[in-house]
């Protein structure tokens, strides 16, 4: 609420972002990160205390200190495994965005093709990805390909659906305006549809990127010899729960960073989207 009033007062100020204080320590973003950090620290401390107090065996629930030790003290090459999973996730995600946006464009621009494409997409979405991962392994081998493909598969659908609704969501009056000016199909697509789809595309990307991490890890579970998913399988076999938690931590942190990057680029690329209510990490506008 205060933000709104702050903006109203700033009558002549800049366009995109609401004005904020130059002092970093007073900014709402800073306050929020302090709150989040404090919460995390408190949770970790309670967790640590609980583990010690009740003498919980490490294979059941490792204390944060043990996870930490595993992360930095073990011989496991987390950098390597982490970057493998990140690589699969990113490639799958980028492919999903590119092909998903393309599919959405085809669906909206050629409604006749939509009748053919949509059922196929729906089937691809409904088939449980965990179940086809083993088959993909047979088809694509034990390398990175099946992981990238599963990451792509799970990330694809939200992009298509969101982008297609965005492309189709141009106001009727704006389309009337386009028609009355005899705008070409090309103009209607680039000037009217694409910009109107961007906010929804970004929403789709936020959902997709977290799904892509899941997809990559699931595929690693099924078969492979590198990646954070593989570490979890190994940790399970050896009852090294601390290692499993360390891997889990890295996956989550990676997913969070990717998510934050998308939100940040959203703020930079579509500053006009005042109704960017989907911003969780960034400024609540």
């Amino acid at each position: 609420m205060e933000r709104t009033s702050a903006r109203m007062q700033a009558g002549g100020a800049k366009v995109a972002a609401p004005p904020r204080s130059n002092n970093v320590f007073r900014s709402p973003a800073f306050h929020r990160s302090v709150k989040v950090s404090v919460t995390l620290v408190v949770v970790c401390l309670l967790w640590e205390a609980g583990c010690r107090w009740f003498e919980v065996p490490s294979y059941l629930l490792p204390a944060p200190s043990r996870v930490f030790a595993s992360l930095f003290g073990s011989s496991v090459d987390f950098v390597h495994h982490g970057s493998v999973t990140l690589y699969e996730t990113l490639l799958g995600f980028v492919a999903a965005v590119a092909l998903g946006a393309l599919a959405a464009a085809i669906i909206v621009v050629f409604p006749k093709l939509a009748d053919i494409i949509m059922p196929l997409l729906l089937i691809a979405q409904i088939v449980p990805k965990v179940a086809i991962a083993p088959i993909l392994l047979i088809w694509l081998g034990y390398g990175l390909a099946p992981k990238i493909f599963v990451a792509f598969l799970v990330a694809f659908f939200p992009i298509v659906i969101n982008t297609a609704s965005g492309l189709a969501a141009v106001e009727r009056e704006l389309l009337d305006l386009a028609r009355s000016l005899e705008a070409t199909r090309w103009q209607i697509f680039w000037k009217f549809r694409v910009p109107s789809a961007l906010p929804l595309l970004f929403d789709g990307m936020k959902i997709s990127v977290t799904l892509a991490v899941i997809g990559a890890v699931i595929a690693e579970f099924v078969g492979g010899n590198e990646g954070l998913g593989v570490l979890i399988i190994i940790a399970n076999q050896e009852l090294d729960t601390a290692l499993a938690f360390a891997s889990l931590f890295l996956m989550s942190a990676g997913g969070l960073v990717l998510y934050a990057l998308i939100e940040a680029s959203e703020r930079v690329l579509i500053p006009w989207n005042s109704a960017a209510s989907g911003q969780i990490l960034g400024d609540h506008r």
Partner: peptide
């Protein structure tokens, strides 16, 4: 012809 609609129908990205 210039058309003014019941709603502003502006492009919010412009």
């Amino acid at each position: 012809i210039g058309f003014v609609f019941q709603v502003p129908a502006l492009m919010k990205w412009r």
